[in-house]
Nucleic acid binder design. Structure first.
Lengths: 187, 187
DNA sequence: AGGCCCATGTAATCTGTTACATGATTCC
DNA sequence: GGAATCATGTAACAGATTACATGGGCCT
C-alpha cells in the first residue's frame, strides 16, 4: 500500500477533488508515481474511511458537484511514519527501452518514429516542468534563493527530478535515433 | 502482458536459466524493467507453453540441474509485432521521491540519511553500468566506433540509458541533501 | 450534431507481491 | 556450524488495468 502515501503527499499543499488528483497523477505527479482515476477514487474512499483524509462537498453551478479532500492529522502522522521507514528502490518500466534492447532484431524505421515521438513528448513535459518551477519560485526569484528561504520546497524538488528525467529521456532518444540512422545509411 | 516482451528481449542475445534471468531482472535489466523470480518462472512457463521460447535441460555436477531458454522464431515474430505497435509512456515509481514531496512536513534527518543511502546505491549502479559498457564495446574501442560498426548495440544503448538515469538519481539526491542541510542550519 | 471537459464510480480481470517449500554445495 | 549461492516452483493475497456506466455543460 504505497499509493496511499503518494496521494497523501499530493494533498499536502492543497485540497483537491478526485478528478483534479487524477489529472495530476496522469501527468505522473512530477514523474514519481502514476495511477488511473479509478484507482484514485478507490484510494480516496479508503483513506477517508480510515480517517486519513477528510472530504467536503462543494456545490457548483453549471457543472457536477465535487468533493475536495484534505489530509487530516492522522494522515499526517501516517505520512511521517512512512517517511521514517526505509524506502524501496525505485523502479522504471518502459516499453520503448525494451524495443531498443531488441533493436538488432526488429524493424528500425518504426523504432525511430517511436523514439522521435517520445523525444517530443519528453521535451513537452520538460517545458511544462520548467514552467511549473518558475511559477513555484516566482518569476523574479533565483532558484538558490527560493530553495534557501522558500516555504514549500518539497514539490519544487520533486519537479526538479522530473525535469532532469525528461531531459535525460529526450537526449537518449535523440542519441539512439542518430545511431540507428547512421547504421541504416551505412547498410 | 508486457513482461513477456521484456523477457524475450533479454533472451535475444544469450540462453539463460530462470535463475540467471532473475538476477538480471533483480538488477533492473539496465533500468527499464523489474520483476521477481517467481514472476519470471511463471512467465517462462507460459512462454514455453505458447511456443515463444524453448527450454533445454542442462545436467550439472555438484549443483541442481537447470533449464536454459532461447527465443524461438515464433518468439521473434511476437517481439517484432510488439516493437511495431505503439509504446505506452514510461513510468517511474519511487518511494523516496514521495518522501521528498512531503519534505516540508516530515523529519528531515531521516530523509537525509535515506537520500545519502540512495545516492551511494545509484553511484554503485552507475559504476556497474560503466563496466558493462566497457565490456560490451571492448576495452580499447571507442563508443562512436562501436555504435557505428558493432554487432549487438541494443543492450549497449539500453545500458547507456540506465547509466544516465542513475547518474541523475545520484546528482538529485546530493542536491536535495545539500538544500535540506542548509535549511536545517539556518533554523 | 459531435466531441471534449467535468465528475464519480462499479465489476471483472489481469498482474505483481509476499509467504512458503525444498534441498544440495560452497564459502567463512 | 551458519550463511550464501544455485535452482525451481506453489498458493494466497494485494494492487492495477480495462471495460462499462451515467449525465449535464461548453465549444465548434
Amino acid at each position: 500500500m504505497a499509493l496511499r502515501h503518494a496521494v497523501l503527499a499530493a494533498l499536502l499543499d492543497e485540497e483537491l477533488s478526485g478528478y483534479q488528483l487524477a489529472k495530476a497523477f496522469d501527468l505522473g505527479v512530477a514523474n514519481f508515481w502514476h495511477a488511473r482515476p479509478q484507482q484514485l477514487y478507490a484510494e480516496l474512499a479508503r483513506l477517508e474511511n480510515d480517517g486519513l483524509v477528510a472530504g467536503r462537498e462543494v456545490v457548483q453551478d453549471n457543472r457536477p458537484n465535487k468533493r475536495l479532500f484534505r489530509v487530516t492529522d492522522a494522515g499526517l502522522a501516517e505520512l511521517e511514519e512512512f517517511a521514517a521507514g526505509s524506502a524501496k528502490p525505485s523502479f522504471v518500466r518502459d516499453d520503448l527501452v525494451v524495443k531498443v534492447q531488441a533493436a538488432d532484431h526488429v524493424d528500425t524505421g518504426r523504432l525511430i518514429a517511436q523514439l522521435a515521438e517520445r523525444a517530443a513528448f519528453a521535451q513537452a513535459k520538460a517545458d511544462l516542468f520548467g514552467k511549473l518551477l518558475r511559477a513555484m519560485r516566482g518569476a523574479d526569484r533565483s532558484e538558490e534563493e527560493f530553495l534557501r528561504h522558500g516555504e514549500r520546497i518539497g514539490p519544487y524538488l520533486t519537479c526538479l527530478r522530473g525535469l532532469a528525467f525528461e531531459e535525460g529521456n529526450r537526449d537518449w532518444c535523440e542519441r539512439v535515433i542518430a545511431v540507428l540512422r547512421e547504421r541504416g545509411e551505412g547498410a
